[in-house]
């Protein structure tokens, strides 16, 4: 396995293109942060790498499009996974036709409901963390995710997306309504409880 070029440098990890047993692959390596003490740094890197690999695998089992995990290296904080050929939803959403946009948002809502049905919390649902590939919306970066069956956790998960849409796609704020509409249909539990929770979280924020 050879490390080639870095294609993206995020806030906490570097993404580079690699090969895994002949397949084109992606390596996500969590970078040690010199601003925090080693104790916290080691704990976060190892914990997040392990948790992320586990959640991606479970999300796939729930029927959500995610990259296939090839290998996990906890000590160095590296996950090797399938290369997805596509574009970030963040970069395409504002340029789509209304119809396409609605259809994408419906798919997003369906996928979130599917992993929530299995108590998987993504932890950072933003449009930067979704890749449109083969007409499917793939979810990436489960690095802040967790397993949690509480309505609160699911509400917070969706609230992150709501804020991301408000800040990055502010002229298309109805996107979130389409997400919720499909979410309601696919979620096994009563989605209204989660939606009520989102409203509660909004009010809990300062000065709402």
């Amino acid at each position: 396995m050879t490390k080639k070029n870095i294609i993206y440098r995020g806030a906490e990890a570097e993404i580079c293109i690699a090969k895994y047993k002949g397949f084109k692959a992606i390596q996500k390596k969590r970078i040690p942060k010199s601003y925090r003490i080693k104790h916290i740094d080691d704990r976060l890197i190892s914990l997040r790498t392990k948790e992320e690999a586990k959640l991606i695998t479970e999300a796939r089992q729930s029927g959500v499009a995610v990259p296939i995990i090839y290998d996990v290296d906890l000590k160095n904080g590296i996950i090797t996974m399938e290369y997805l050929d596509g574009k970030r939803i963040k970069d395409v959403l504002n340029d789509l036709s209304e119809e396409e946009r609605d259809s994408i948002c419906t798919k997003i809502g369906e996928s979130i409901a599917r992993f929530h049905n299995n108590d998987i919390i993504h932890g950072d649902i933003t449009t930067s963390n979704m890749i449109l590939s083969n007409e499917q919306v793939h979810f990436i970066d489960f690095g802040l995710g967790e397993k949690n069956n509480e309505i609160e956790a699911k509400g917070v998960d969706l609230h992150v997306l709501m804020e991301a849409i408000e800040s990055t796609h502010s002229q298309y704020s109805s996107c979130f309504d389409y997400v919720l509409e499909e979410y309601k249909k696919v979620l096994k539990d009563d989605a209204n409880l989660v939606i009520k929770k989102i409203q509660e979280i909004v009010k809990r924020g300062r000065y709402r």
């Binding site: 916290i40 649902i125 802040l144």
Partner: peptide, 13 residues
């Protein structure tokens, strides 16, 4: 001595 404390980040919150 570092004492383990909860580190709570949800997205950017």
């Amino acid at each position: 001595k570092y004492l383990e404390l909860p580190y709570s980040i949800k997205g950017m919150d």
